[in-house]
Amino acid sequence: MTATALRTDDQWYQSANTVGELVRSSFKPVVVARPQLSAPSVVHRSKWARAAVDRLMALAPLRDNWDQRGSAAVRADVLSFAWHALAQIMPEDGLPPNIVPLGNGGIQLEWSSDSAELEVEIARPFQISALLVEAGNGGAEVETDLPTDTWDRLTEVLRDHFRS
């Protein structure tokens, strides 16, 4: 019969090889600090990435009442979600978005070109809305609510209208 050594607290003890052996052992959870945003040099080398990360990081320290009008602090999970969404939908040569905080703790991503404007509001992770405003026939503006259940349409719009 073989015995295994287990450590509990600062004591070593020999244990028989039984089914309950692991149940009797103890462990302490290890907390690992994880960055909210990945380093752009590792994740993405596109021109838009550095500007986007810098702006997202600048919004991270905003706290409640950041605008002296009672607005909520920008949520860390919204910033993280926005970065991951951008990494999926942005073309490599895409224009960086304007990123502004919202009073509800969310953010808005904005793009503007001669042919269109795009606003993507992120209130919570996976709670987003997108509005595309294009110049129509005769100079009239055409507003379109874009579907956000998949990234396909947003990716297409960014490729069509917002590239450098």
Results as ranks from 00 to 15, higher is better:
Trp111Glu: 02
Arg69Met: 12
Asn137Arg: 14
Asn98Pro: 05
Asn98Asp: 09
Asp67Ile: 13
Phe81Tyr: 15
Asp77Met: 08
Ala76Trp: 10
Ile128Cys: 02
Ala58Gly: 13
Ser113Ile: 11
Glu110Lys: 07
Gly94Ala: 12
Ala60Asn: 07
Ala72Glu: 08
Asn137Glu: 15
Ala123Leu: 02
Ala58Trp: 12
Ala130Asp: 02
Gly94Thr: 14
Arg75Cys: 11
Asp64Pro: 12
Leu109His: 01
Val133Ile: 14
Glu141Ser: 12
Leu79Glu: 04
Ser71Arg: 07
Asp64Phe: 14
Glu134Trp: 04
Leu59Ala: 08
Leu59Cys: 12
Pro61Leu: 06
Asn137Ile: 13
Glu110Ala: 09
Arg69Gln: 13
Ser71Gly: 08
Arg63Ser: 15
Leu132Gln: 04
Ser113Val: 11
Arg75Thr: 14
Gln108Thr: 14
His84Phe: 14
Gly103Pro: 06
Ile107Asn: 02
Glu110His: 13
Trp66Phe: 14
Ala116Cys: 09
Gly103Thr: 09
Phe81His: 05
Asp67His: 08
Ser80Lys: 13
Asn65Phe: 06
Ala123Tyr: 00
Gly103Met: 07
Glu119Trp: 02
Arg69Pro: 10
Val78Gly: 00
Ser112Trp: 04
Ala130Leu: 03
Leu102Lys: 04
Ser112Tyr: 05
Gly136Asn: 05
Trp111Ala: 01
Ile128Asn: 01
Val100Phe: 03
Asn65Gln: 10
Leu86Arg: 05
Ala85Ser: 14
Gly105Leu: 03
Pro125Arg: 02
Val120Glu: 01
Pro125Gln: 04
Pro97Trp: 01
Gln68Asp: 15
Ala116Gly: 08
Gly106Arg: 00
Glu141Ala: 14
Leu131Thr: 14
Ala72Val: 09
Leu95Arg: 11
Met90Val: 09
Met90Trp: 09
Ala85Thr: 15
Trp111Leu: 03
Glu121His: 09
Ala72Asp: 11
Pro125Ser: 03
Val74Asn: 01
Leu62Cys: 08
Gly139Pro: 02
Arg63Ala: 14
Leu86Met: 14
Leu118Thr: 09
Asp77Tyr: 04
Glu119Ile: 05
Phe81Trp: 15
Glu141Trp: 05
Val120Lys: 00
Ile99Val: 15
Ala58Cys: 12
Ser129Glu: 03
Ala135Val: 10
Gly105Ser: 01
Pro101Gly: 00
Glu119Leu: 06
Glu134Cys: 06
Ser113Phe: 10
Leu132Pro: 04
Gly106Trp: 02
Gln88Ile: 06
